[in-house]
Design a protein around this nucleic acid. Structure first.
Lengths: 351, 351
DNA sequence: TTGTAAGCGTTATCAT
DNA sequence: ATGATAACGCTTACAA
């Protein structure tokens, strides 16, 4: 009975006995005669008309889509960003296209270049590495881009960053205040954006606080649990004394460290205090609950979305305004893993 | 110097001194003279040509996008699905459009209807409720849809389900084998798809196993931590004896229960064994680690993606094949919260 | 107020 | 093998 293909404005125009232009006008709320409006709306309703967003996009050069690209959407940090970004985009009438690029930097480049395909009006990206290629692509990007993470040249794109140096300092001061002196550090890959920043911050932070960094208490691996566990086992197996505190470059590493410390019979925080970074959901759930440096993932996501929406909204022909940079302040969330209420030293030396 | 707008095939055609048809042919690998190909590729390269995906979509009626709609992408269950779906779609050349609808069923309907806008070639949806409206929209959907979750009428769409009844039975048998007899149940909203299924399963499972369900040990709330904690406190405050085991309708509820039990000085699993459902990442991290019924979220996601890709691939003009249904078997993941290795009853009765 | 027609950037069908 | 041209569904001058 009904036609097999879905109705277009042409279908509606025929059914209503008007031209396609009138249909378009009615659908877009432009002034028409009441009678025309009635007939068009009638026909549209009867035939179940839905405008084709692709055709609309081709004509308007706007897709009402925004892409969000991260290394691994399974990572709670990126998820926290996504959770803020998604509703903001939706409220502004944008669909969210999600890219999970994997550790490969080439894929990030691919996403940046992909903007040329015009499938999205803008992009929020959290690069895991920033290479010269990244910068070149940013410069040539065919749509507004907001970068979450530090950018060497602030003129390239809107940028949301966090002060991880201050975050690390807060953690170190907290540990020092608790009387900890031998502070170990377990990092992810130092050639990534966050890994590099945290490594630098630890180096300068310990130096400034006059804390010694013993040999064999700084480890580098990946941003995962295994890395945390391995590092702890290696430290425990080493002849040198165990650190009395561990700063971990993210919560996953910290959880792995907690596992290994427990397996070794070491008490947290009695023997070793543990601090994570990112303050993900996992931190509150773990045992003991994990003290963690919040780097404001959620806020960073929200800021990024707002910057991008702002720029998309203000696409008046005027000269594009200069890139803006927002910095989110870290916060230290103290939980039991650094000895909240009761730090009990029972003198046990289980091995 | 370079033109302000990005190059189109027209630009390339002019630069190469050929027609737009030839440009298109070269770009699509159709047979052309070597010389023509060289000139086109040359010009395309020089001008940095990138095909416009919107125009391509309008012409081909394929967007190479697939939508994934869930209630809340922050929920680890949906995240687990997403983590499987995303790479499968990417490998097949599809972009992923993510919808996080919120608890409002109307928004789910909106997503279904939105397919009429033709912004995606297919949809994977995890409805939180299935109303007659849902079914009507499914019937009228303008693109292939895969539903994750039980569907009353299996003829409406490809469908991936899990046997939550069996999952609940496995948990109950496990608890009964451990000698637990007074089993409490903390559920999410019973008018949601998962809530209803789990409630039914608990009812029938306990009956079949001859387990008594004492008054005041079945609670209904939301699928969150607060619900788990509140339910435990209410049970503990009640005059009736505390259950010796708690089945929780998801891991979040179970984590809340663990918190409250700890606060009450009750030992897990000594006093109360706790079982969660979904086996999310949180289960392995919590303390004690949480025994949980895996409902195969990851597998369900993967199956859904494969079903959809399959259907999109096989869009030969032939009659559409009948909807397919896949069922994923639940598995019980036993951890310490039900007393793995060492269940120590130290006789303490802290309160 | 309304209709005709051009154009968005492609692909694909015709001739040639 | 190639070029002119129609078509995808829509918006928007421009005419009437």
């Amino acid at each position: 009975m009904a036609s097999r293909t879905s109705p277009t404005i042409t279908t509606i125009a025929q059914a209503a006995g008007v031209s396609i232009a009138s249909v378009s006008r009615v659908l877009n709320g432009l002034p028409v005669r009441a009678e025309t409006e009635r007939r068009v709306l009638d026909a549209a309703d009867r035939l179940g008309y839905v405008p084709n967003s692709v055709a609309r996009s081709l004509k308007s050069a706007r897709t009402h889509q925004i892409a969000f690209a991260v290394e691994d959407i399974g990572n709670p940090v990126y998820l926290a960003m996504l959770r803020e970004i998604q509703p903001l985009l939706k409220a502004a009438g944008y669909r969210l296209v999600l890219h999970s690029t994997g550790a490969d930097a080439a894929e990030e480049i691919e996403v940046l270049r992909g903007l040329g395909q015009r499938y999205a009006d803008g992009l929020i990206i959290v690069p895991i590495r920033v290479t010269p290629d990244h910068l070149a692509e940013l410069r040539a990007a065919e749509a507004p881009v907001v970068v979450i993470g530090s950018l060497p040249d602030s003129g390239l794109a809107d940028n949301v960053r966090t002060d991880s140096r201050r975050g690390v300092e807060m953690a170190l001061r907290h540990l020092a205040d608790l009387g900890r002196r031998r502070i170990g550090f377990i990092n992810g890959p130092a050639d990534t954006v966050p890994g590099h920043a945290r490594s630098e911050a630890f180096r300068s932070g310990t130096a400034r606080a006059g804390l010694a960094v013993a040999d064999g208490t700084v480890h580098e691996g990946r941003f995962d649990r295994e890395t945390g566990a391995e590092a702890v086992h290696r430290m425990a197996d080493a002849p040198a004394p165990m650190p009395d505190a561990l700063l971990c470059a993210n919560d996953l590493i910290a959880l792995g460290a907690l596992d290994a410390l427990r397996a070794r019979g070491l008490d947290v925080p009695g023997d070793v205090a543990v601090v994570g970074m990112d303050d993900t959901d996992l931190a509150a759930v773990s045992w003991p609950p994990l003290t963690s440096v919040s780097l404001g993932s959620a806020e960073r996501g929200a800021h990024a979305a707002r910057l991008l929406l702002d720029r998309l909204g203000a696409d008046t022909g005027a000269a594009p305004s200069a890139p803006r940079a927002v910095t989110v302040e870290p916060r230290l969330i103290v939980r039991a893993s650094t000895g909240g209420a009761r730090v009990v030293d029972d003198g046990s030396a289980a091995g």
